[in-house]
Structure formats: C-alpha cells, structure tokens
Design a protein around this nucleic acid. Sequence first.
DNA 1: CATACGTGTGAACATGTGTACACTTTAGCC
DNA 2: GGCTAAAGTGTACACATGTTCACACGTATG
Lengths: 199, 199
Amino acid sequence: MQAALELVAYEANFSAISLRRVARQAGVVPTAFYRHFEDMDALGLSLVEDTFIELRGLLRGADLSALPIKGLTRYAVELFAYHVRDRRLLFQFLVKERFSGSRPIREAIHGHITQIVIELARDFAHFDEFSRIEETDLQIIAELVVNTIVSLSERILDVAPDNAEDAALMLRAEKQLRLIFMGAGRWESRASSRAARAG
Amino acid sequence: MQAALELVAYEANFSAISLRRVARQAGVVPTAFYRHFEDMDALGLSLVEDTFIELRGLLRGADLSALPIKGLTRYAVELFAYHVRDRRLLFQFLVKERFSGSRPIREAIHGHITQIVIELARDFAHFDEFSRIEETDLQIIAELVVNTIVSLSERILDVAPDNAEDAALMLRAEKQLRLIFMGAGRWESRASSRAARAG
DNA sequence: CATACGTGTGAACATGTGTACACTTTAGCC
DNA sequence: GGCTAAAGTGTACACATGTTCACACGTATG
C-alpha cells in the first residue's frame, strides 16, 4: 500500500500505475502481489478505507461542541490542514481518485464524504445559533462547509510541502467558513421553503 | 477529440486510455493519430482549451449585471446546469482531469478556473451591495461561489442524464449561493482584516 | 518432528503499447 | 489536368502488462 501511494504521488493517478510497478516499488516480484490483494481495485479500496478510518478518528476526537463558533473555524481549519499535510500521500490519492477512479473507488469515497456531511449537520443541530434551521437546510449548509474544507485540502496538496503559501490558503478557508456561518445566522428555513415552492 | 471524449466517459479517466484506442475509436490507424497531435498530452490540452473557450463565451454572453441578486442565483444555476448537461462529455473530462491529469493539463485547468474567479470578483465589484468589501475579500467570495458551481457540475455529471434528481441538486446549489450572498451582505472587510492581524 | 500456512519466486504466455518508416490515397488549387 | 499538402495505411520492433502454474522458503503450532 505504501508503494502504491508513492507511485500515485509521482504519477498522474492510480489507474496510470500498473500492478507490476507497485510490486517493483515494494521490492517484490509481480506474482507476490496476489498474496495480498485480488487486483488493483482491491488495493485502491483498502487505501480509501484506511484514509477514512483515520479521518473519522480525527473528527471524533475533535470535540467541536466545546468551542464557541468564533474560535471553532480557526481551530477546525488548523486541525484539518495539519492532518492533511501529515497524511499527504493518502490525501493526494483521495483527491485524485475522487472523480477519476474506478466506479467502486469513486462510490466508496463519495459514500464516506456524504456520511461526514450528515454527521456534521447533526452536530450543527446542537448549536443554539442553528436551532431555527430545518434539518434539510442544515445538511445543505454542512455540504457547503465540507466543500470548502475539501477545496482547502486540494490547494494545500497542490503547493509544495512546508510552503509559506499554506498560511494564506488557511486564512482564505477560514474567512470562507466565517462567511458561511454569517449567512447561516440569517438563514430562514421557512422563507426559503416558501420561495422554493413558489418556484 | 470526439473519440477521446467518448472513451474517457466510458473508462476511468484520460490517462487510462491509450493512443491506439483513441485511433481505433476514431476509425483510424494508430499512426494517423500523429497527423493531428504530437502525443496524448497535446490532445488533452486541446480538449481543455476547447471547453474553456466555450465556457468563456457562455459567461460573457450572460449579462448578469442586468438582474437583481435575487433572480440572479436561480438564473445562473440554471444556465450553468444546462450548459454542463449540453456538453456532458467535455465537462466529464474536465472534472476527471482537474486533479488526476498530467501536470500540464492540471495547470491549464487550474489557470482557467483562477481566471474565472478573478473575473467574477471584478463583476461583483459593480454591485452596490458589495461596494464595502475589499478586493481581496471579493476574490475569496468569488472563489466560494465558483467552488459551489463546480461542485454542482460534479454532482450533475454523477447522475444519469435527464434524471429527475437534477432539480434537487440545482435547488441545493441555489440555496447555497443565496446563503453565501447573505453572508457577503453582512461581511465587513476591515473587521475581518483586523481579526486576521490580531491572529 | 512434522505439518500446515503465509509469503515470495521464476518461467512462460498472450496481448497491448508507443513509435519509426516508407507508402498510398484524398482533397483543393492554379 | 496536374501539382501539392494533408490525411490515412501497413509493417515492424522492442517493450510492458496481467495472470497462470509449480515450486521454495520461513515460521509457528499440533
């Protein structure tokens, strides 16, 4: 798995690297590959699962409900940015395969992200500031937040490691999140539903 | 180019299809490929350029400044969704290659999107509602808007063509954009800069 | 000690790949 | 009608790929 990650970081993406190259990178003969995975797709799926198991642990560990919304955005951005840099190769793999991987891999990634959105929306429901907002609208807001964080990850992975530009990217993301929360503070679920029905 | 698009829609991504398969799909012998492109990368870059030339035309043609912000979001979402569906294969290619393509292709796409963000921020500056906001903050907001639209495109391309789910996706994106604009309406550039300096 | 199992090996195969080269065909223009 | 340039063809080569099969080594457990 480590060998595959290294190759993906170097090459364009996962489908561009061959079973034989993974084996070579791992210092092993091609046929030995089959002792561990049925095929390349199985390897890719294992990488996806690993990434999200760890990410889920991170999100569970960060008890955001303890903080006020103000400090929350900065803390969340820093936590996430640190983790992405720490697991650079894993997230590089994820970002590349999210849309260009094989169908099973794409679906696995999409499913996990959807799950994160749902859980984030559930967390939002505990904040007094959002008590007015309907559940479906909370999910829409959560999706916006997740999109923003994902976009930050993509940008961080684009620049070289330990680049000074990282700080600017994080500030951007932080502002975007603050703006989203300002919008959410004024959001009226009933008004928006009415507008939607009026079509 | 059409042959390549068809194959990319069917396969995982661009780097997974070979020069020989493109030629076969085009009903032509492999060596004939070289009469049109130096290599596969050149083909990919041509596809990127084509997509953005057309997209730029669409954005230029849509004179958004004529509308009030309220109707603007719905109109923009519908216009964009229609165009993405209309050029499905091109945008499928774009979404897949944005992060997983070869370096030149990735950079070309990224450059074009950055350009669109800059121009959108410039358009924002003409609205009275945003006159308070600094230019750098306008770009951050424009980026948020573009991210949301890109995300909508990705979702539309994920579901089958002419799927009823499209309408729900568009409504989501419309709400997200309205929320962003509500946040922007309360945005205070000086306050945010001060907070940033305070660190 | 033996035996079962996880892991790694080497040779072999049919098939796909990018590209070079010399050639033929096609289409447009004076 | 003949010339030119663009587009397409066929052959050839050296190489990479996924997968198969029978075999070898290590270790831990009965």
